[in-house]
């Protein structure tokens, strides 16, 4: 049997709060997850569940008024939260790269793409401008852009959305990072372009041997790309398991609800199941399990105590006090 791959990133009890006028927003509250070498972890959840903040916390670029107040982020055996700012600058973009959701806003509008790529390349690699330009053109070939020598001198506004996202990917890959954080990289693209970009990212990941965290709210996207999935709700992880397990044997009621909300071509004009209610206000989140006000199976135990993330089966972690009851066969939602 193969040896189990080592984890490249391990987050323990990450807590990132935003100190706003309205109160402390507990956007990420005790998140633990891990990414193994060469693996793609899908980080799934509704808008506002803290997925992006988790990813930004890894690079320590949470915008004000957000602050990481607790936890450990162990990358290749070292805690990133103990690094100095200048040490972090050497990790950002070189070791861990980030792809943003909206390619229209993640490229600086006043610099040509070449300028932006060359700056990043020269920041982390000791090369001349000409060599950097050559590398940049090489990267453009990698992300399958036609006429890279000409296109590289474009300004972001001259390009289509899909093209911009390819360029943003090229920038993220410019220094061969070991870990790629992709924050909804296809959400703002047309469906056909989405498929192309996902395919591209999948291939590139294999080619460059990276690990990846793919953040999305689209179950269809993770199904095709992720090896494992962590489901986030209201700033916490509620379930973590292999992709197949999540799809065929989800144990957390929230995961199940999320899966039932995905439209399916085989459905015969049934009404889509929706999750009643909205994601809670994270200034004063619900006590105990944060999902209990929207959960069909909530009992008194769910209200009083925070359910810990426990390994129910091998490699299947669930944060639900009733998870064991759901194991095997699932009670159906009315």
């Amino acid at each position: 049997m193969l040896m189990a791959p080592k984890e490249i990133l391990k987050i323990e009890n990450l807590t990132t709060h935003f100190y706003t006028w309205a109160g402390v927003v507990k956007a990420v509250d005790g998140v633990s997850l891990e990414v193994k070498e060469g693996e793609t972890l899908g980080l799934v959840g509704e808008s506002g569940s803290g997925k992006s903040v988790t990813a930004l916390s890894i690079l320590r670029i949470v915008p004000r008024p957000g602050r990481i107040i607790d936890g450990k982020i162990i990358y290749k055996g070292e805690n990133l939260l103990e690094k100095t700012e200048s040490e972090m600058e050497k990790i950002r973009g070189k070791e861990i790269a980030y792809i943003f959701q909206d390619p229209a806003t993640s490229l600086n509008p006043v610099f040509s793409v070449a300028d932006q790529l060359i700056e990043v390349i020269r920041r982390h690699q000791n090369v001349t401008k000409e060599e950097a330009l050559e590398k940049a053109i090489e990267l453009f070939r990698l992300v399958e852009i036609a006429d890279p020598e000409i296109k590289i001198w474009s300004y972001p506004h001259q390009l289509s959305g899909g093209m911009k996202q390819r360029m943003a990917i090229a920038r993220a890959l410019s220094c061969q990072p070991s870990l790629l954080l992709a924050d909804e990289p296809t959400t703002n693209l047309d469906v056909t372009i989405q498929a192309q970009i996902l395919e591209l990212m999948k291939n590139l990941k294999k080619k460059l041997g990276m690990s990846m965290i793919l953040i999305t709210h689209d179950m269809g996207v993770v199904a095709g790309v992720a090896d494992r999935i962590s489901v986030m709700y209201a700033g916490r992880i509620c379930e973590s398991a292999g992709t197949k397990t999540i799809f065929y044997n989800p144990l957390h009621p929230y995961t199940r609800a999320l899966l039932e909300a995905v439209p399916n071509i085989a459905m015969k004009r049934e009404k889509l199941k929706i999750i009643p209610g909205a994601i809670p206000n994270l200034v004063s989140p619900p006590s105990g399990c944060r999902f209990h006000p929207r959960c069909d199976f909530a009992g008194p135990a769910c209200v009083s105590a925070v359910p810990p993330l426990v390994e129910i089966e091998p490699e299947h972690y669930v944060a639900c006090v009733r998870a064991k009851e759901f194991s095997g066969k699932l009670p159906s939602r009315s």
Binding site: L59, I61, E89, Y98, F100, Q101, T105, P109, F111, R123
Partner: peptide
């Protein structure tokens, strides 16, 4: 507040370049 500033930071650019090049020009 723009994404491209966050993106510049995420690429490991120095604070000086982020502020005086990427942000200031805009």
């Amino acid at each position: 507040r723009q994404d491209y500033i966050l993106a510049a930071r995420a690429s490991g650019l120095s604070e000086r370049s982020v502020i005086y090049k990427h942000a200031l020009r805009n």
